[in-house]
Design a protein around this nucleic acid. Structure first.
Lengths: 110, 110
DNA sequence: ACCTTTGTTCGTAATTTCACGAACTACGAA
DNA sequence: TTCGTAGTTCGTGAAATTACGAACAAAGGT
């Protein structure tokens, strides 16, 4: 017997994304990545007022939420937004925040 | 001596709002209020799978974050979005999520 | 005054988050 | 192979989150 869920899958996903965004350090990283396409953990570690192990935890949290992805590049790791999930977060959170993405002209992804 | 802040006020605010949105129950309430202008705690309590004291805590969290406001109305309490802060959340989170409130241009995308 | 309704606060407990330093892994360079 | 760099994992502790039920407070109706 399937009981009707009060809280939708979309709302749970949106909450998951919002939760990942719910810390100043992680918000900083996300905003950076939304503007410059990629960054390296080491660069962040130099700038941000936390030790690298803590930064690693935050980056892991963002990865677990699906918002970013790391790519091994020689000695370092290059982080970028996870395009697909970032797009989903834009849509889901945009929906709650009453933004309306114009599908037509901006983005042709699907 | 003023040290330059790495993480901006706006990012901290945005993270605060995102944090408040980072739970399915609270996301549900916010989405409801973004669509129907107001609601009552009792109605939520009947629908949602949590006891009223827990719901009260979530509503308090949303109030503390500034996203909603309660108004005493006879025996009940009427909750609405806090328009001013909700608008700020729209702008701040919209900025990070690269939404464009103005219809105008999309040429900078990609 | 008493009862009912509505919602908050309190006390408690389990879990998660956040932060640090130490230790560890992976890997390219010397 | 040894060393240095880049980053993760482990162990720890403090604090916050989430949830519940019991007790409490406010206010309208009887």
């Amino acid at each position: 017997m399937i009981q009707k869920e009060i809280i939708s899958k979309e709302q749970k996903k949106a909450a998951r994304y919002a939760k990942a965004m719910g810390h100043p350090i992680r918000m900083y990283v996300l905003e950076l990545l939304s503007k410059q396409s990629c960054c390296y953990s080491g660069d962040l570690s130099e700038i941000l007022p936390i030790v690298k192990s803590t930064l690693s935890q935050h980056l892991k949290e963002l990865q677990d939420a699906g918002l970013i992805q790391g790519e091994i590049e020689a000695p370092r790791i290059k982080y970028c937004l996870n395009k697909e999930n970032w797009n989903e977060a834009q849509i889901l959170l945009g929906n709650i925040l009453n933004f309306h993405i114009k599908q037509s002209s901006c983005e042709d992804v699907k």
